[in-house]
Amino acid sequence: MGLFNNLKNIFGKNKNQITKEENEIIEKAEKYKKGMEKTRNTMMSRLKSLFESYDVINDDLFEELEEIFIMADIGVSTVLEVINKLRADVRMRNITDMSEFQKIIVDKMFEIYVKGEIVNTNLNINDEGLTVLLFVGVNGVGKTTSIGKIAHKLQSEGKKVMMAAGDTFRAGAINQLKVWAERVGCECVTKQEGSDPAAVMFEAIQEAKAKNVDVLLCDTAGRLQTKTNLMKELEKIYRVINKEIPGAPHETLLVIDATTGQNGMNQAKAFTEATNVTGIILTKLDGTAKGGIVLAIRNELGLPIKFVGLGEKIVDLEYFDIEQYIYGLFSDMFE
């Protein structure tokens, strides 16, 4: 039972048996656990009471399970898919034991995410020359904040970082990025409010090249995916970057707010069409929202989650780790 036992092995181990590597995993897990505490508590308490109130696996149990997943904002069709697979598994393997059933649930969630591939959450960094990362998303999801946090992360990994203030529309957006650049201690290329964002990118790339920058982080204005003109603008930004450096942007990261419901799917579709999104940053996971929509996005569109925002501090952004995420959702089961 792949993941479940793996996790259980590590977390069930005696303290002095733990290797250094495993220790790192545990530390990271603690961070997830803390960030997702609210999420887990609500979901877990429901799961727990659910399993306590059932002795047999029957239709009612499945129906309630369906509810719990839907409450986590995992998309309706993905939920139905998971539930159907669970039903099939239970039937085929003739499972009657509750604790066995719990394991299967965790493993199914894991399968939905992994889909038999090796999911790479590492950023696609161009070792020879400049790497460009483009950040896109709807309004108010935390693009600028995520850039600040990622800049900090990359900088502390020894990379030379630069920011490009491509949100020339929203009042105060340029200054907001500047403040982050100061905090991180990197440069920030800006133009006047209202100027063409593609031109900002062009200039930023020239400057980054001249100054031997390793990674350029490009901010863009938040836009609803239904605004045709604004999506065209984004296509243009993408084109300009791509023209200056073949193969760039090396990553286009779609930022999604964990409180987002089913609309997250539309966002992922539309932004992928415009800019060839390569990964997702899930922000604000430290609230009570579960961000389950990213599981649906991964399931239906194949987009991996690269980072999760777990708090307001500059260090509260982690590389996404599906095992940790699922552990965050189900950790009480492992104890």
Partner: peptide, 11 residues
Amino acid sequence: DAMTGQDAVTV
């Protein structure tokens, strides 16, 4: 935010 999911009620 009108795009909020199930969590809207909790918030």
